[in-house]
């Protein structure tokens, strides 16, 4: 049994890759899967903060690649879910710290340890780190904002996924590509100020696996180091839960695409 490798990527920075990686990994663990989530952003470690384990990082991804620590030593066990582990990025400034062989060795090690899923949190850009994060993937979640530069960059990434990855080079079945639209604001879409789900799907020629509404809860969740999927009252959290279910093959309708109508009390008292 080999682990399914999911890369969370985007090209453009700041669109919600790490937020998404943390929530998808946590969601898969909630479903009973054994999951490792790896931060590929060498030099700019951040996933540990979003997962809330920043003070427990002893060894990192590069230490394992260089044989300075074992995989078991470097994997940080989540405090909330027994089957969820984090592998932090190194803070070295050496960009060549990761190699293709090294990454392959770590992914193989995780398969041997019985992991069901490995979520690879890609750095922004299309440089080496992003290339390594996507190279071995079976699934790709392309995070996109309804905004021109993000949409254009995701098209570029979709092109790279279908040409510069192991599956493409070996002529195997293509990586399964999933589009995740984040920071969606139905009110702005309604007045024509923001690209709609359909607009983005039309331009990129691929349908979305989920739509995460813009939400104050995302910042609150990152402030406290709790993946937003665990905030069950928030629409963003619920939308991530739906996305995880869809990734696992379940069919669920998209939610939170309509403008929320304010209730009587909200209209009277504001809010």
């Amino acid at each position: 049994m080999t682990a399914e490798i999911i890369v969370v990527t985007s090209g453009k920075g700041g669109v919600g890759k790490t937020t998404t990686s943390a929530s998808l990994a946590t969601g898969l663990a909630i479903q009973g899967k054994k999951v490792a989530v790896i931060d590929f952003d060498v030099g700019l470690r951040n996933l540990d903060l979003i997962m809330g384990c920043e003070r427990r990082v002893v060894y990192d991804f590069v230490n394992v690649v260089h044989g300075e620590a074992t995989l078991k030593q470097a994997l940080i066990k989540d405090k909330r879910y027994e089957t969820l582990y984090v592998l932090a990025a190194s803070q070295t400034r050496d960009k060549d710290a990761l190699t293709q062989e090294g990454v392959e060795k770590v992914l193989q090690g995780l398969s041997e340890e019985g992991f069901d899923y490995v979520v690879c949190d890609s750095p922004a850009g299309i440089e080496k780190g992003a290339h390594l994060a996507m190279y071995f993937a079976d699934h790709a979640v392309v995070v996109v904002n309804p905004e021109v530069s993000s949409v254009r960059d995701s098209d570029r990434i979709l092109g790279l996924l279908s040409s510069k990855t192991r599956r493409a080079e070996k002529g195997e079945d293509a990586i399964k590509q999933h589009l995740l639209l984040t920071r969606y604001n139905p009110a702005r879409v309604a007045v024509g100020e923001m690209l709609s789900v359909k607009d983005v799907e039309d331009i990129l020629g691929i349908s979305v696996v989920g739509v995460i509404p813009e939400s104050e809860n995302v910042l609150a969740a990152s402030n406290s180091g709790v993946p937003v999927i665990l905030d069950e009252t928030s629409h963003a959290g619920q939308a991530y839960t739906d996305t995880v279910a869809r990734l696992l093959g379940e069919e669920r309708p998209l939610r939170f695409l309509e403008v929320q109508k304010k209730g009587f009390f909200q209209r009277v008292f504001g809010g």
Binding site: V148, G192, L195, S196, D199, D202
Partner: peptide
């Protein structure tokens, strides 16, 4: 948004 879609 219409302009954005056309440009993209």
């Amino acid at each position: 948004a219409v302009v954005a879609k056309e440009r993209l």
